[in-house]
Design a protein around this nucleic acid. Structure first.
Lengths: 220, 220, 220, 220
DNA sequence: GATGAATGAGTGTTCATTCAT
DNA sequence: AATGAATGAACACTCATTCAT
């Protein structure tokens, strides 16, 4: 039915094919709503193959998480080490991020937009991959801030903060970008750089803006 | 079995009770994995009541989305209109956000962290509520930038951009905050203000940072 | 479809109905080949009811084993205690056995003719019930042999032996009886009594027959 | 992978190897729960070989039944014809039985402890083999009773009865023996001889024990 | 002669949803 | 107003069986 070359593929290839389909379907439906039949059909194989290769729906999901996470982390690290000056490195990293997400939106969604508490095995792998991504971003932020001396003393807590803010902003902008055809990864990256580049250093050096004295809180 | 106040509550109260339970369970499990039995049990009623009040699981979910969305939007708008100067308003808005999320994490999760493509009705309501929230934030950003003249001409595209970046960052920081007991909503708000306050104006006025000339892209 | 009274039975009744069906189907097909749909249909309910009441196919099977085992054990004990003299007691016990099995062949089959190594839970319950039955028979044998003094000294090992031989013979004769319409439980009991009554005492007292000296060989 | 002797065995040998594995697995799991993969692996071949040699799982099972049944019958007949006097023959037969079962427990289990109603082909072969075994035992019993004249007139019904009782007792004792390490086939045989040797003749000659007059029945 | 790769058909189990009371 | 009892429809997973090599 798929025209070229259906049966008898070597194990390696089939595996990637199935993961491709898995990422697509998990991304579109979410883990629970995803139906193994649909994944199998998209991968142009029968359902038992999925079980032969990955053991269970959960196993397949974990494989998807792992591959996408590793791809993303690797892309990041390459980008981060490529640049020269601090701002160039951050620029390269954010470009890599938006480029990757624009190119493989599904992978990102599977990695970041699943219900938070899938059972044990899944949760563990998700955490692992997300932490790897965050670690890469933190590294990016740190090297981008190497000019300012204050960093070492403060235990890196601020770099973590910045990294989370960046990834969150980028994640959100990713969806926005997808809904606004005119926006390209490059344009988005440029704007985000402008938005955070100056302020990042403030945070990493210790804050300078202070809240108006009176009402410090809002929630309670 | 629940001791106080089981039977014969007025409709209004019951409804809120059920929505409370719904938000909690949907947040913990995600839409599909959530089981109506668990919600009913948590609300201390029998399952048919859920169907009597909301018609279906989907109906209940929509009601949850709506209530949480409206709460959040309202909190935002109040915060935004309360302040005086531009930075005070933004500060108040972000404080409201982190305060709300810290106080009712489940509501936020249900609203923002569900699989993107739940069937038609749900998708529509989710979109509606998210857009309302975004509109409030955009308003917040605009009034915070009222000093700079260039805004009107550019169609608000930049304000939207900033708003998405802010919400995304805040969303991500929300999770980070939950994992780092030392971090309070106030401390997080302060850092985020420092990180974006200066750069925001850059973006809203037109960018000033420029990428290194050579290789502007990263993806391909 | 079943004519009288389908829906809305009290829990107790339904449970017995389902166990009845379970015993019948498990007996006919064996545990693994038995299909839950067939049991449900025979019980005149839908499949989910089976799961609501027993949790799983295994749970239902265990319930079947337990009920049939307890019935059989109870019947035995009543029969055994009813008689006066030793031979009367044994006669009553064997009569009870053949009567029960002729009346509820399926129950016996489920209890004794399943593959030996069904998983943990099942194996445990089967063992428990079989041991209860055997204990009752051993008791029967012991009281039947109370005349002979030698019993106590030999640790009851011989009584166990006799009990196993009796149950095995009875089990086998049960199938034979089912295939030979002329044979009634009473006639079978009578013959079995004649076959073992004299020899039993020999065994319980210590053997008297001796093999020919050369020991014509067993296996190895 | 199995070191010695994998490939290119003559058909005869392969067949026996597979049947060996089949008997082992069928015995352990029962017909339905047995999985062809496991049998193939145990036989150290690939699954399609099983189908090449036996056509289907059912075909393999039938082959197992047949081989084990024939082995058992042959062993019996040899034992029966070997002895001289009546009691020697019975002793030899029972010894053969316990010896065989102790040596090849799996074969016995496959032959006698499967769910009664496996589909047509299987049922037929099981019946055939069991009848062959029974015929041999009946023969054994008859020759053991040749001294008593009454036998011929009663159509052999009693010999059949005795044979079934013997086989059942022996079957049951077989399991008991496996659970009590001290018991050897010889000791078990000796006790069973003592238990039945005297009584057997009673039955074959016509009964002598009579039930207590009153309550002949037990069931109801 | 032998096998890795592949699948059609079926089974246990769950869950949203609805009656009958 | 409220619920225990019941079910239709799906879905994850398994297994006997067959190709293509």
């Amino acid at each position: 039915m798929s025209g070229t070359g259906r049966r008898r593929l070597p194990r390696q290839v089939r595996e990637q094919q199935i993961i491709d389909a898995g990422v697509r379907v998990f991304s579109k439906r979410g883990y629970h709503a995803a139906v193994v039949d649909e994944i199998a059909e998209l991968a142009d194989i029968s359902k038992p193959m999925v079980y032969l290769y990955f053991g269970s729906k959960e196993g397949l999901f974990i494989a998807c998480i792992r591959r996408e996470g590793e791809r993303l982390t690797r892309g990041f690290q390459e980008a981060a080490s490529a640049g020269k000056s601090a701002d160039e490195q951050l620029w390269a990293g954010l470009s890599a991020f938006f480029g990757y997400v624009a190119a493989t939106r599904d992978g990102w969604v599977v990695l970041y937009r699943q219900a938070p508490e899938q059972g044990g095995e899944i949760a563990a792998e998700v955490r692992r991959q997300r932490e790897a991504v965050m670690a890469a971003v933190v590294e990016l932020v740190r090297s981008g801030a190497s000019g300012s001396g204050a960093l070492a003393e403060r235990g890196g807590r601020d770099a973590e903060f910045v990294a989370h803010a960046l990834v969150g902003a980028a994640d959100s902008l990713t969806g926005w970008m997808a809904d606004h055809p005119g926006e390209t990864p490059d344009k988005v990256t440029l704007r985000l750089m402008n938005m955070v580049w100056v302020g990042m250093r403030n945070v990493l050096d210790g804050e300078v803006w202070v809240p108006p004295d009176g009402d410090s809180a809002a929630g309670e």
